[in-house]
Design a protein around this nucleic acid. Sequence first.
DNA 1: CGCGAGCTTGATGCCGATCAATGCATGTGG
DNA 2: CCACATGCATTGATCGGCATCAAGCTCGCG
Lengths: 250, 250
Amino acid sequence: MVSMARPSTQSGSAAAGGAQGDGARVPLFGVAAGLDPDGVERLGKLAAERRVVARGALLFRQGDPLGALYEVHAGFFKSCVSDEQGRSQVTGFHLSGELLGLDALGSGQHGADAQALEDSVVCVMPFEPLNELLRDFASLQHEFHRLMSREITRDQSMMLVLGTLNAEGRIAAFLLDLTQRLQARGFSATALVLRMTREEIGSYLGLQLETVSRTFSKLQRDGVLEIRRNRELELRHPEALQRLVQGTGR
Amino acid sequence: MVSMARPSTQSGSAAAGGAQGDGARVPLFGVAAGLDPDGVERLGKLAAERRVVARGALLFRQGDPLGALYEVHAGFFKSCVSDEQGRSQVTGFHLSGELLGLDALGSGQHGADAQALEDSVVCVMPFEPLNELLRDFASLQHEFHRLMSREITRDQSMMLVLGTLNAEGRIAAFLLDLTQRLQARGFSATALVLRMTREEIGSYLGLQLETVSRTFSKLQRDGVLEIRRNRELELRHPEALQRLVQGTGR
DNA sequence: CGCGAGCTTGATGCCGATCAATGCATGTGG
DNA sequence: CCACATGCATTGATCGGCATCAAGCTCGCG
């Protein structure tokens, strides 16, 4: 039997209990594409460990040695890089089902902090056994490469956003990206709850928090957006947002 | 014996002849880390094909199906994504020794145009045989993952540049990045020849070409930089550039 | 219920986009 | 070898969007 119906908010359940015993739910990579029974079992074993991360706590820190990759099992994370004098920037938001830690493969240490923005659970995949598994199963290797590659294209489209769009366009692109990813996980395409502050959004988009706030207000005035209690958004006209992304030449 | 001494300009030789017969020079991934003789041979065979790309010509186009990965063997490339209405942005510059095409692994098609900015030669690595080789040799697999991961961290630090630095800081970061990469390949750390226009630099950095030009002029006035014949740069005070990257809070 | 973090809104100034000329190199044909 | 054409770069003037500074305001939480 498949798990319970999706809750109508995207927070999901933060409880870890039970999931582990469910042999059919292999969390790795979303799909365990065409694996033989032995492979499925090894994959299940590899990804068996869960870790609970409380709101505000760090899953790993910039500079930590790479020990494992993580899949967000429930909850919400941000990644954040900081330089020596304490300035820092949010480099990404990660919702449930997504992978964390890929950036560490190169140097062997994590390039960013990963902080939980709500109480979360991750699935821990120790690095070395994972590597062996990839070598033994071509389909997994493919899937893994696909995931890394997607991370690259995602970052590049973010560079494009930062390089070419004005404030409105950036906010629009941000909202569309977030809702698309939520929709891919079975949530509403038009309603969402922001788990991050205006400041974190601004940091991510290269804007000041005041500009984020003003832009939200303007979109609401224009009837494109509805905001309730600061964090609950409803997209009234996603096409209008799309037009902002397309149409703004900076 | 190691190959000839490096030429003093970073253009290198664009001639393909001869390299192929040289069994000791395995171009893949820079290093062929700890491979047994059989592996070295297969690697050499895989990467045997060369392709010449004339200045201005495209190695591949956005949307082309992924057939191979490429290593820049000599020359200089830019990657460039464009949307439907013809707006486009430069997403990267690639100099000799670097890999091209990693972004295509995810979707199976290239996400950007790759255009030669000078007459160039690439080494072609057909995708499927490469995959098999990665599976058979753990050290190659590691190296490959390291390369993809580095691409991710590179893009993320670019996001940081675009998100937090003003024009001067962006130009400084751009110049330092370029010279570092050139230095890693044996060229001078302080002298370089730009192979791209001000407009392409601007596109890459999210600036207008006029701003790029003004910033170059200012850096020259400040004695940080010397410019000869538009494209030949000399960094007089790299530390000053470093300070611009560190010190500019936007 | 009251405190404080986070959000909104206003006023002001600066950086960089934009528009517009002019200058300088490279290459081409006479 | 010079004259011109053409693309690229520089420099100036102006203007607007967003950062910055500065109050209030709201909501969630203890």
